[in-house]
Amino acid sequence: MSTVAQALRPATTSLNAAQALSALDTPLDSLPVINLAELGDSTRHTPAHARLARIARDIGFFYLEGHGIAPEQIERLEAVARQFFALPPEVKQRIAIHHSRHFRGYTGVGGEITRLQPDLREQIDFGEELEPVAQAADTPAWWGLQGPNQWPAELPQLQSDILAWLDTTRDVAKRLLQAFLVALEQPATALNALVAPPHNNRLKIIHYPGQAQGQSDQGVGAHKDGGLLTLLLQDQVGGLQVQTPQGWLDVPPRKNAFVVNIGEMLELATNGYLRANVHRVLSPRSGVSRYSIAYFFSPSLHAQEVPLLDLPSHLAQQARGPESDPLNPLFSHIGTNALKGRVRSHLDVAEKFYPAQFALLDKTAKPSAY
């Protein structure tokens, strides 16, 4: 860990998963649905806001409808995503993620690691299109996360569709964040500085190839997301599961609806009132492909620290404190926390561009075969 990270305190409260999930008194058979249009203009607290806060505290996952994104834009992005994955392997490898210190680009099946096991998916990572920060001897390593994307010359329409989606989804995520703040009896603008430009949001388009019976089915291993909010589009195949006290809950596709989950940074800002929950994706069966598009609404690197919201006493009494895995500690410093997650997941990029951080990863963070 860098000297910056060593000077920062990890989240001090640690709960085991069973304690954290005990708030779910009634077993769930499906995720709840939130209609963003019913949450109004974020100027007054309504019963819909109270329900939003309760759902986010209890399970941290829900379907989002009423977001206002045209179905045609969704269909266009889904189509161009499939076109990208149909490109020849050598074309995709020209924009491999290991060429980018900003963790942007293509990763083949098994190239990303979750809980020491390879994820059986291929993907391409994007972020906000920004100029890189000039590197000097005293530049904190996490500034390397800001920079441009890699684009395939063979699919020129991908760039315009991705950049348009980043803009469109950012607006939806900001509206939803403001609704959460009103739900917690905060000003809707309370976290505006945290998500102000230059933005640090990411987008991942993903292909899960089918796996034969008896093989690993880890599409992506059990994990939490590290940002504020994740907005996921699924195709019609399914495979996403959310952890509950009763076991894994399937999250079947819901056409043109996002699956939304709370990230660790929003859990941190609310002292654990809102909860980042564990989820995973199972690989589809042999001969079937699954596609999804995940948007990660994240704090700006320029904001430096995640603030702690001053919740009213009746809500603060229900806050459980943020969870912090001793093997993957949670930091309030935005850049440190963001780089930690990237380094642990993409060891090839870490080894090439972040050798100091890579060297400090202990054996528990590296697969034995690496």
Score class of each variant (00 low, 15 high):
Ala7Ser: 15
Glu267Met: 13
Leu120Phe: 09
Gly239Val: 08
Trp142Leu: 04
Gln236Glu: 14
Leu327Cys: 09
Leu327Val: 09
Ile262Glu: 13
Gly263Asp: 09
Val343Phe: 13
Arg202Asp: 04
Ser289Met: 05
Gln19Asp: 15
Ala48Arg: 11
Leu347Tyr: 15
Tyr208Thr: 01
Gln246Pro: 08
Trp248Leu: 11
Pro140Cys: 12
His102Glu: 00
Lys255Glu: 15
Ala183Trp: 00
Leu361Met: 08
Val195Ile: 08
Asn192Thr: 04
Val288Gly: 11
Arg280Lys: 15
Leu240Cys: 12
Leu231Tyr: 12
Asn200Phe: 03
Glu129Asp: 13
His302Cys: 11
Ala86Ile: 01
Arg342Phe: 13
Pro118Gln: 03
Leu309Pro: 12
Phe296His: 07
Leu203Asn: 01
Gly105Arg: 01
Leu87Trp: 02
Gly247Trp: 12
Val109Glu: 07
His102Phe: 05
Ala137His: 04
Leu39Pro: 13
Phe62Asn: 06
Pro140Asn: 10
Thr107Lys: 02
Ala303Ile: 10
Arg76Asn: 14
Leu203Met: 07
Phe296Met: 10
Ser289Trp: 06
Arg51Ile: 05
Leu339Lys: 11
Ile206Val: 08
Thr26Met: 13
Met265Thr: 13
Thr13Ser: 14
Gly105Asn: 02
Arg101Ser: 03
Thr189Lys: 03
Ala303Asp: 12
Gln19Thr: 15
Val242Leu: 11
Ser100Ile: 01
His346Arg: 14
Thr364Trp: 01
Pro148Phe: 02
Thr169Ala: 05
Ala56Lys: 02
Pro10Met: 14
Val109Ile: 07
His199Asn: 04
Arg344Ile: 01
Asn192Gly: 03
Val343Cys: 12
Arg254Tyr: 14
His99Ser: 00
Thr26Arg: 15
Gln357Cys: 13
Arg9Met: 10
Asp138Gln: 13
Lys224Phe: 01
Glu112Cys: 00
